[in-house]
Nucleic acid binder design. Structure first.
Lengths: 345, 345
DNA sequence: CCCGGCATCCAAACCGCTTTGGATTTGATC
DNA sequence: GATCAAATCCAAAGCGGTTTGGATGCCGGG
């Protein structure tokens, strides 16, 4: 309630030493129950709360987790990133940790990590959006900054801790569903394939095709930022081509909406003339639920991934020597209104 | 490069006092050019960077700005919020500030602000999504924590610093455009009207109507979270009603996409049979540009608002006594493909 | 009655930086 | 040559906590 009371004043008011007061408040055993009660009461009355800078300095732990996002990554990951952050943030505040986010120019990313380490700004960081040729983990290992990867780093699955969904399997299953429905010509609108997650999705798609002796047709496969127009424009182009696909496998709800728009503009009906399966990150502003979801989808909550990644990182921070461990989340394959048997079947 | 070098070691290596080294690095004048050079060189060689906790403690400034987002606010503001954050984050890192984000349970919001103040976690905060009956600013004034509002607090426009767009004017102009095109029956799909921005938009809509002697028809006015299904479901319902509107004024691109979907499902054509004007926050993953934008819109970059709000806040933090000042951004009215003359005109 | 042990509590060092209040040197002035 | 101011540099005192290494008092046991 009152303004700035510090430990010293508080202990004066109580005729106790700072040591005792500090111990009482932090739950150490060498303090009598009665004293502890008195201290708690007075602290409450004076509205005492320890200055976090001082505490951090004294303990040597910054009680914060860093997220550095280069501007470009951010551009494309926008909504997914926030949802992850939201999940992670819940975990942090539950454990008394702060979340600090650094938005940096692309060529300052490495610098940002170094600063976090040398200036002791955070006890650990999360690596977002690992690329196919990723190297941030090596830097972090070199400067000894604990981290967890959201996604996986090819070639470093064992030595790093990560939380990822099973991208390959999800897209394999989705492709199989389309094949089972009789679709033979399936377009893939993937995310940027220099990102690890997009590679895995493509692999799943191709695996499913080749398991049935089909060749992927690169003329109906795309890779780009997952915007709405990306979905619409590419779908439009393909639908107007000589051999249009009868189904689309899409990497994001947002682009899938674009695909649906293109289908509508061509005078076709989604789920009847043309099928769509999209990945659904369960973004709160793009709900795809209800009795029958609009889109048939592979769904995996990125928010949940954020929560779990944060928990994992806090564990590592608490005990840096613990062996790396990871979490592999499975996406659900949920049937909605956007799929149906291939036409003319 | 090396690991933990601190001021003490650095000054020892240089045979200088900590005072001098500190001053040399922080650009104080009472240090010779030669000494400053030597210091800089050695600091660079040893990879010295000041421990931020220690510095914060010594200076009494936390060099951080806080953003507290209750989970519920977050749910609905999701993508817009991140875009704002991204803008603000750029400004912070440019000025050496950290951005700390607290995701809290709704009933802990006040607590979060108090903690930031008493534990000195941040030098200031940004108030997000002010409601029609807002009170956070009173709390912040009481605990003396500098802040800037993203949006406006009704009744406190003078005494607070804020960055907002001209919501009323934007929707007034949009409505006028529709009226000029001959539309007489215009639906409003607004955001949650307990939020200040949505109230203002509604006001603009109603002002434009009444200026032409028209009464708003509440049967085609809605207020809700701005999701995609919200747009689709409500548009669908209205289009199937006895007196369907010929135009929609929508508060968000995401919902507008839903409206377009509904129009398509009814076998109508957007921009011909039915017009749409939406507000466009210029979200990076929902570009509405190109030669002719998909949607006619009122556009105002929320990212830019974030940059400016952050600058304003940093100014206030630097000089808390400065009088409050604010920034009123104007939205552009941009004609795209989603509007046309009222049918049968 | 004395001693060891436990329960409590405290003075002081420390975390790593900034900043105050001099001390010392240098150089120009008269 | 003495004086004063400017130019440099430094020792030490914070900032507000945590933590180490004892003190002190009280108790039962030998």
């Amino acid at each position: 309630m009152s303004k700035g009371v510090n430990l010293k004043e508080l202990s004066n008011r109580l005729n106790l030493s700072q040591t005792t007061v500090s111990r009482a408040l932090n739950g150490y055993p060498e303090v009598s129950a009665e004293t502890r009660r008195r201290v708690a009461e007075m602290a409450d009355k004076l509205g005492y709360a320890p200055n976090s800078q001082a505490r951090r300095l004294a303990t040597g732990r910054s009680m914060a987790i860093g997220h550095v996002i280069p501007r470009s990554i951010h551009e494309m990951m926008n909504p997914i990133f926030l949802e992850f952050i939201a999940g992670a943030g819940e975990t942090y505040s539950k454990h008394g940790y702060d979340m600090i986010i650094s938005v940096v120019e692309d060529d300052h990313e490495e610098d940002a990590y170094r600063q976090i380490a040398t200036r002791k700004k955070a006890d650990g960081v999360i690596i977002h959006g690992p690329a196919a040729n990723e190297s941030r983990h090596e830097l972090l290992q070199a400067i000894n900054l604990p981290f967890v990867v959201h996604g996986r780093i090819p070639g470093a699955e064992q030595e790093t801790s990560w939380v990822d969904m099973n991208n390959r399997r999800a897209f394999e299953r989705a492709t199989n569903l389309l094949l089972d429905l009789g679709h033979k010509r399936i377009a893939l609108l993937n995310g940027l394939e220099h990102m690890d997650f997009a590679r895995r999705r493509r692999k799943g798609f191709e695996d499913a095709l080749s398991a049935r002796g089909l060749e992927p047709d690169t003329s109906i496969m795309r890779s780009s930022d997952m915007t709405e127009p990306y979905g619409c424009d590419n779908a439009m182009e393909m639908l107007k081509s000589e051999h249009p696909p009868t189904a689309f496998l899409v990497s994001s709800m947002i682009s899938a909406i674009g695909v649906a728009r293109a289908i509508g503009q061509c005078g076709l009906v989604t789920g009847k003339d043309i099928s769509i399966i999209t990945h659904d990150d369960a973004l709160s502003f793009l709900p795809n639920s209800g009795e029958v979801p609009i889109f048939t989808c592979t769904r995996s909550s990125v928010r949940y991934a954020g929560q779990r990644a944060a928990e994992l990182l806090l564990d590592i921070v608490a005990d840096p020597k613990r062996p790396s461990s990871s979490l592999h989340l499975d996406a659900e394959l949920i049937v909605g209104q956007s799929t149906g048997p291939a036409p003319g079947r």
